[in-house]
Nucleic acid binder design. Structure first.
Lengths: 192, 192
DNA sequence: TAATTTAATGGACCAAAGTCCACTAACGCT
DNA sequence: AGCGTTAGTGGACTTTGGTCCATTAAATTA
């Protein structure tokens, strides 16, 4: 992946930084659809082809920029936290929803892009979706070992249901608030 | 809406039929993204502008074509059916999933289009999403009046969760089968 | 220093969605 | 028949994502 080339002109690392920054800024300001590749490369001060040397599509670049910027985005809940898993789930979701206030529109655009480009869909799943699903699956498994959730339940399945719940709201532009986080937790763990 | 014009050249109704048919056929055969407007109008034998006189975008046309063709698509479950609502929900979902085998790809494309075009998103919600959500909400309310589901639960919320569950699978191209329909019903009504 | 290799640049090019427009066709009305 | 009105046609045009390519720049190696 990161094989160091033995000769030839070195890659300009700054160009990558500038492109990611420009992409993120423009997309946040104007919305994904309204930002052209031409505008991004102009803002970054590099040639169009330089962008395409590093990323395959606009969606690739923006996904990369979002992931790089939001390392902390929805950090996995700590499994050694002694509080009830129901509470941890609720807090985790509330956290995710907060980040979606900033990144929701970009994310909707990337989800759309994934539907139109099978190659990007795979990257998006590998780098974004699956890791986040794993976090909730792990939390649910922890709840099971703690006896807070019946062992008969399918943790992976429930993780998918939880994600589906807020994806659906996100894609249909309905609000994602703490109340909804609570409602999801209640559906999973039962009425309190 | 359907104001009859008092004068002027009459609209060629056949052109609309031909356009819908051509769009649906080409999209099913080649996939939404790979079908150009040029190909559709050529297939239908009309001018490009004739299409745009009737629909605003490619997504509009295809939504219209899908809705027209699949009137029967996911017919609402009969609320007077004496079987348990759990069973009705499961059957309804299995039915939806069957139709998604045919229309799933087109639907994914329309969902993507809705993320890129606010005007289309509204039409899509009004004509497709909300009516289908209502069906499940009604079914859940029926379950509540029958005492098969606790009255304390929020039917609209659960309807959203159910839809989210299979949307998520659809958009992430994971299988939608009878087993999944059963799993959703179990999450809603509790383990049998 | 010269040869080789890889990156960056700028601009031409292509396909596709959607707009615009001048022109023609088909209707009702007088 | 002539007029106004609306629909349909074909083609030019704009914008944008993405490709291609010839040329130039920056590095290593011999």
């Amino acid at each position: 992946m990161t094989t160091k080339n033995v000769s030839g002109r070195p890659v300009n690392a700054q160009a990558s930084l500038d492109l990611r920054a420009a992409a993120l800024r423009l997309v946040r300001e104007n919305g994904y659809e309204r930002v052209s590749i031409a505008a991004i490369v102009k803002q970054a001060g590099v040639a169009r082809q330089t962008l395409y040397n590093r990323w395959d599509t606009k969606a690739d670049l923006v996904l990369d920029a979002v992931l790089e910027e939001t390392q902390s985005y929805a950090a996995a809940p700590r499994l050694d936290d002694p509080r009830p898993c129901r509470e941890l789930l609720e807090e985790f979701l509330a956290n995710v929803f907060d980040h979606l206030l900033v990144n929701g529109d970009v994310l909707r655009a990337l989800i759309a892009a994934a539907q139109q480009d099978a190659a990007f869909q795979e990257k998006f799943a590998a780098r974004f979706i699956l890791p986040r699903e794993q976090m909730i699956t792990d939390l649910l498994r922890q709840a099971q070992t703690r006896g807070e959730l019946s062992s008969g339940r399918d943790a992976e399945l429930i993780s998918g249901l939880v994600h589906g719940a807020f994806w659906y709201r996100l894609l249909n532009r309905r609000g994602l608030d703490r109340h909804f986080a609570q409602a999801i937790a209640s559906e999973v763990f039962g009425q309190p």
